[in-house]
């Protein structure tokens, strides 16, 4: 099972930096099954999630040179770009009072294609069971911070927990996820 293949992805990204749109197409096909659910989880409306994802891929196309392999994999960078775009859009919609009120659960509930997302689904199942093994607070901190885009001090206020505790829960939760799913099993 291979969800991310850093060497292959890095080669694709270097080609994107040189302006090869075929390489962007490859990355699009490879990573949309991972990126789109994140955008949809954040925005909860297909049209908004698609707009956010389009902006994200344009940013990847224009700013591929800003990727720094020492900071993490291409997959992680693509996710950062997509999540940031989705959260920005969520905040601007919320500011206009639209995000919460116009949630349309049907709008994005397109069933995933088995071929496109089989690997992702397989991984997803294992991640869900891994998440279930975390302490409830650790899991909550990770989910709120990642999918709702709250900063650590906002998370602390929401959970009525000291900031230092939220910081260590974040570290412990991520480490625990990493331990439960060792690298060789999903890379």
């Amino acid at each position: 099972m291979s969800l991310t293949d850093q060497e292959r992805d890095h080669r694709s990204l270097l080609r994107v930096q040189e302006g090869d749109s075929r390489a962007l197409e490859e990355l699009y096909d490879r990573y949309t099954p991972l990126l789109y659910p994140v955008a949809f989880r954040i925005l909860r409306r297909a049209a908004d999630a698609e707009d956010a994802l389009q902006e994200a891929w344009l940013q990847v196309w224009r700013r591929a040179v800003t990727y720094d392999p020492r900071r993490g994999t291409v997959a992680a960078w693509l996710l950062t770009v997509a999540r940031t775009r989705a959260l920005d859009r969520y905040r601007s919609l919320a500011a206009r009072g639209r995000a919460e009120s116009s949630v349309d659960p049907e709008a994005g509930a397109r069933p995933p294609e088995p071929s496109a997302s089989a690997v992702h689904a397989q991984l997803g199942e294992r991640v869900w069971s891994a998440l279930a093994q975390l302490q409830p607070q650790q899991r909550q901190v990770l989910e709120i911070a990642y999918f709702e885009g709250l900063s650590q001090s906002e998370v602390a206020a929401r959970l009525n927990a000291p900031l230092g505790t939220v910081k260590s829960w974040t570290r412990q939760g991520l480490l625990r996820l990493r331990e439960i799913l060792p690298q060789e099993e999903w890379m």
């Binding site: 969800l3 659910p37 993490g72 995933p112 991520l174 990493r178 999903w186």
Partner: peptide
């Protein structure tokens, strides 16, 4: 940071499946 960023990819993979048009 590299380790944590791998773990954040795993967290992302926990989002319910969905696909764009």
């Amino acid at each position: 940071l590299a380790e944590f960023s791998d773990a954040s990819v795993l967290l992302a993979a926990s989002a319910p499946l969905a696909q764009p048009g």
